[in-house]
C-alpha cells in the first residue's frame, strides 16, 4: 500500500468519525419528549459535550504520546485532579465567575504538571516513576476535593457529585463561547506542532536530528493540553476516562502512523456525546455522563494493564 492510498484511507476514517459526531449531535438535539426546549437546554448541553469531549480527547492523547505510555493520561497522573481541586476551591469558597475559574484551574494544572515532572525527575527521566508520583498526587488531591465538598455542599449533593465524576446537567450558556475559543486555539497550536510531536514519538534523538526544538515543543504541547483539560473541567467537571480512552481508541481505529490529534479529539467527542445520551435516555435512572464513561473506562484499564504486563513493558 503506498503512502498516498494510506493517507486517503486515513482521511476517509476521519470523515467517518466526523460524520458520527455530527449524527450524535443531531440525535441528542432531537431526541426527547418535548421539542420547545431545544434552544434553551439541549443546544448548550450538546455544545458543551462536543467541546469537552474534543478537549479531553486531544489532551489525553498528547500526554500519552509524549510520555509514550497509555497509562500516563492526565486523569491518572493527577494533573486533572489538581486543576479540579483548584476549580472546586474557587467555585465553592470564592464564588468567582466561570472564566476566571478556568484560568486559575489552568494555572494550577500547569503548576501541578511541572511539579510532578520535577519531583519524578531524578538524574534521568523515568515515565514509571512519573506515573507512581502521579498516583500519589492523585490521592492527595482527591482528599483535598473530598474535604472541600464535605465543608461546602451539604445542601447541594449534585454539585458535589459533578466535581467527582463530571456531569453535563445545568450547563451555563455564557461559559461556552470562551471554551470554544480556547479549544480552537489549542487545536491550531497542537496541529502546528504536529511535525515536532511525530518526531518526538520516534525518539528524542530523532527529533533533534529533524531539527525540532525538543524542549520548546514538549513544553508548548503540555501547556496546551493542560489548558484544554482545565477549561473543560471547569465547565463539565472531570468526565472520567475520556482523556484516558480516546487516544488508544483513535490509535486502534486509525493506525499508529499518525499522531492522531484530530481523530482522538473526535473519538473523545463521540464518547462524551454517546455517554451522555446513554446516561440520559437508555438507562433506568438518569446517570451523569461521568458515571457512564467511568464504567466504560474500567474494563479497558484492566485489559491494558494485563496486556502491558504480558509484554513486560512495566
Amino acid at each position: 500500500m503506498n503512502i498516498r492510498k494510506r493517507n486517503q484511507i486515513y482521511v476517509l476514517k476521519i470523515a467517518l468519525l466526523f460524520a458520527m459526531v455530527i449524527g450524535l449531535c443531531f440525535l441528542t438535539l432531537s431526541y426527547g419528549e418535548t421539542n420547545n426546549l431545544i434552544m434553551q437546554f439541549r443546544i448548550p448541553r450538546t455544545t458543551a459535550a462536543l467541546l469537552c469531549g474534543i478537549a479531553f480527547g486531544m489532551a489525553g492523547n498528547v500526554f500519552q504520546s509524549l510520555l509514550n505510555n497509555p497509562l500516563a493520561s492526565p486523569d491518572i497522573i493527577g494533573v486533572s485532579s489538581g486543576s479540579t481541586a483548584a476549580a472546586v476551591y474557587c467555585i465553592l469558597f470564592m464564588n468567582l465567575n466561570r472564566n476566571l475559574v478556568s484560568i486559575i484551574a489552568t494555572l494550577a494544572g500547569i503548576f501541578i504538571a511541572a511539579l510532578i515532572y520535577r519531583i519524578s525527575y531524578l538524574n534521568k527521566f523515568s515515565s514509571n516513576r512519573l506515573i507512581l508520583v502521579g498516583i500519589g498526587f492523585q490521592a492527595f488531591f482527591s482528599a483535598l476535593i473530598n474535604w472541600m465538598i464535605m465543608k461546602a455542599a451539604e445542601y447541594d449533593v449534585p454539585t458535589a457529585m459533578r466535581w467527582m465524576n463530571g456531569n453535563l446537567n445545568g450547563i451555563v450558556t455564557d461559559s461556552l463561547p470562551f471554551l470554544g475559543l480556547v479549544v480552537f486555539i489549542c487545536f491550531i497550536t497542537i496541529i502546528a506542532l504536529n511535525h515536532g510531536m511525530q518526531s518526538l514519538l520516534i525518539g528524542e534523538q530523532t527529533a533533534i536530528i529533524h531539527g525540532v526544538n525538543v524542549n520548546l515543543t514538549r513544553t508548548l504541547l503540555i501547556i496546551c493540553s493542560v489548558i484544554l483539560i482545565a477549561f473543560a473541567t471547569a465547565v463539565s467537571g472531570p468526565i472520567s476516562s475520556i482523556a484516558f480512552l480516546s487516544g488508544p481508541i483513535a490509535g486502534k481505529l486509525c493506525g499508529r502512523n499518525h499522531s492522531n490529534i484530530i481523530s482522538s479529539g473526535l473519538v473523545g467527542a463521540i464518547l462524551v456525546l454517546s455517554g451522555d445520551f446513554t446516561g440520559q435516555y437508555l438507562l433506568f435512572t438518569r446517570y451523569p455522563v461521568g458515571v457512564v464513561t467511568g464504567i466504560l473506562g474500567a474494563p479497558y484499564l484492566i485489559y491494558l494493564l494485563i496486556s502491558q504486563n504480558k509484554k513486560g513493558k512495566l
Binding site: 472520567s240 467511568g294 464504567i295
Partner: peptide, 8 residues
C-alpha cells in the same frame, strides 16, 4: 477506579 465507578 473500576470499583468506584460501580459504586457510583
Amino acid at each position: 477506579i473500576a470499583l468506584s465507578s460501580i459504586i457510583n
